[in-house]
Amino acid sequence: MNLVVNNTSLFLAAMLVLVALGISLWQKLGLDKDIIVGVVRAIIQLFVVGYLLKYIFRVNNLWLTLAMMLFIVFNAAWNAQKRGPGIAHALPISFLAIFISTGVTLSVLVFAGAIKFIPSQMIPISGMIASNSMVAIGLAYRSLNSQFHDQRQGVLERLALGASVMDASIAIVKEAIRTGMAPTIDSAKTVGLVSLPGMMSGLIFAGVDPVRAIKYQIMVTFMLLSATSLGAIIACYLAYKNFYNAQKQLK
């Protein structure tokens, strides 16, 4: 292993934060407080997670692993629903969408033998899947909100013609799903050319043969496509109905 980060090098690397702070103060961006809060939070959260994972990996208990995965899914849902202000039941919808997308994707990976059901594999992979599903759902919510606002007249006209709420919303729902999936598809197209993504970089960093590392990255690309499409489609199809009342009128 070539990993040489120690407390001293980490402390020196913290100087990089001063660069961001300096720019904020110099340009009067007003971000200095946010930067400090962000850095302190990142340090505390990562230390807590580091020790927590060390403990979970050591005890290797099924229920503890599942509880940690559920915790990740809940946090992802909590963050996704923040992107959908005004969408009723956004939290349970996001939770269900991320739960199913993560569950289905993980199950396929486990049954295919790509990963093992051990905490050191299940938990990081759950995090990757849930966070991508979270971003996709957040983008889809934003798209639903803006389209139902901008295309209000078109939706009203479809309803007036006797369309069901599904028929009146289908164009908006499809566009929202597309918007949610777009970043994953774009990054699938440019993977290796523009960025060396986290999984692959991590493995290479840890000294793994790059040819082996790319196989994991290919698996990640597959799983993220599945997770974002499932997450976005479930969330959109459950959320669009909340733009209507019981009389099938646009709220």
Binding site: L156, L159, A160, L161, G162, S164
Partner: peptide, 16 residues
């Protein structure tokens, strides 16, 4: 409401 609107059809002033 959907079946009702197919019988009572509303035309907008500035349709899209």
């Amino acid at each position: 409401p959907i079946m009702y609107r197919r019988q009572v059809s509303y035309c907008f002033q500035q349709p899209t």
